[in-house]
Design a protein around this nucleic acid. Structure first.
Lengths: 277, 277
DNA sequence: TGGGATTTGTTCGTATGTATG
DNA sequence: ACATACATACGAACAAATCCC
């Protein structure tokens, strides 16, 4: 026979019932609400602890979330943002096309918080990519980024402190630099972006990130962390941007070489042939 | 005061002790082994269930792993593979450089299993990227990929079944196509790769993947799933490659535009300035 | 090969704390 | 203030995998 533990059978049955949309939705948010633990205890003829074990299993997987005093709810899966991280220079932009550093999100207008500017000793990886000695002072410009007023990503850009001494004073201002820091650095210091390198990894969110992104408390939602290093034509790095994206609501896209326009413009959407019968 | 639950305090204290390398290592693997539950119960003056709650919290986070009849062990963090997913054509390869489809891993030689060839109805996303009607038949070529004999990634490439009718018969053979399927398709059918599109997402591993990658049973290790679509110069997709990478042992890298050679060649390693004092 | 000791896994019962409405 | 519902914590018994002699 199965031989599965009772809690796993309960968990799998509950997941089935969730997918069948069997449970009623609560008033406002429209989330499905599961029966209370004591009722489930009756339904499955198990102890409350066994039921809780099943719920905890589902909670770890980001399927449900329990709220003290209220009940247990199915976590709505957010519609993913499709973020294009490669340059979008228009088809045939060719050699001279300036690479944009900013991520593009389809059909959405990101809004950014004010910039928090700090002078910090560089953490190891930032120092390595910026090619400055570990622990040397760098300018940190941190922003919270939203799409449709929901938290989307956290971004911090690092520049050598040296840049300020050499005249790029606006790096210390808390305004968003409207024309883009890349363009500003070209004007102020002559750095012209010729290319960039991205490193992508996944890690557990820290408590601040759990709070900012409103991630379920005890679930397995990881965040992507992207390190983007911008290089000028001489191969000197002049900016490292660290961005944190919750993996549950973000898909990352890259276009390399010649890619059809619809794929570039509408990542994650149907294109080319019709789906309709 | 703190006000934290007891199990959380125990978990955080244990994590501290793990980082201090306080626990003895077991004979063969050299993993740290935690004291047994009943001893921890004594050390922390808590019940066994409370200790287990703390251990379960650490297990979810991929910090420790318990094995029935043996004990609880710290999970060793694998040294990450640095995978470059963008084209590496040698610096200055310029316009004519052929983009390589295969991922490059620094200093390592991947070995691939035999190819499992199947004819399948295309799942929705594959059909969309291949621009064929959903559910139409496609060729699926599946491989397990290892580095240093440890499981590294699972890869499946999809081609329209049409390609076989048009003469690309080797797509049905279970041999690895040594010169690369991209080159083969160019010879056989005239598809010349002009570019590609990547989509990256994270998801929970399925049971097969947990088994193949030997992922801790109940921990929050997600896998990356990359969808790579290759296009010819007319913008026609001719191949979709789906690759699954465990997020705990893989870092992904992209180089766009002009990037210094050392960064391209040795992703994830120090370059440019010395770290040593 | 067997059998007993060890250690974690599963399941139950119970009591009390805490946030919600 | 009260009822509801999840959170924390303890104790106990037996099952199942592993190890050792």
């Amino acid at each position: 026979m199965a031989g599965n533990p009772r809690w796993l059978e309960i968990a799998e049955d509950l997941q089935e019932r969730i997918e069948q949309d069997e449970f009623p939705r609560d008033g406002d948010g429209g989330r499905q609400q599961l029966p209370k633990e004591l009722d489930l205890r009756g339904e499955y003829n198990a102890s409350r602890n066994t039921v809780r074990e099943a719920l905890s299993y589902l909670a770890e997987r980001g399927i449900v979330e329990s709220e003290q005093g209220k009940g247990t709810f199915v976590i709505p899966r957010p519609a993913p943002f499709h973020v294009t991280l490669s340059a979008q220079g228009g088809a045939g932009g060719g050699e001279g096309a300036a690479y944009r550093l900013e991520a593009q999100v389809q059909n959405r207008q990101p809004t950014d918080s004010e910039v928090k500017v700090e002078i910090q000793p560089a953490i190891q990886k930032v120092a390595r990519y910026l090619q400055v000695p570990p622990g040397s002072q760098v300018i940190s410009r941190h922003q919270e980024r939203f799409i449709d007023s929901s938290p989307w990503s956290l971004q911090t850009s690092f520049y050598p402190l040296d840049f300020v001494h050499r005249g790029a004073l606006r790096l210390l201002e808390t305004d968003d630099i409207e024309e883009g820091t890349v363009k500003y650095l070209e004007e102020a210091l002559g750095y012209k972006q010729a290319g960039y390198h991205d490193e992508i990894r996944a890690r557990n969110p820290d408590p601040d990130e759990i709070a900012f992104f409103n991630l379920p408390e005890r679930a397995a939602v990881l965040v992507y962390e992207t390190y983007r290093t911008a290089y000028d034509r001489d191969g000197n790095p002049f900016r490292v941007t660290v961005t944190v994206w919750p993996s549950d609501r973000n898909r990352l896209h890259y276009n390399i070489g010649l890619v059809p326009e619809p794929v570039i413009e509408k990542p994650g959407e149907p294109h080319g042939v019709d789906d309709a019968p």
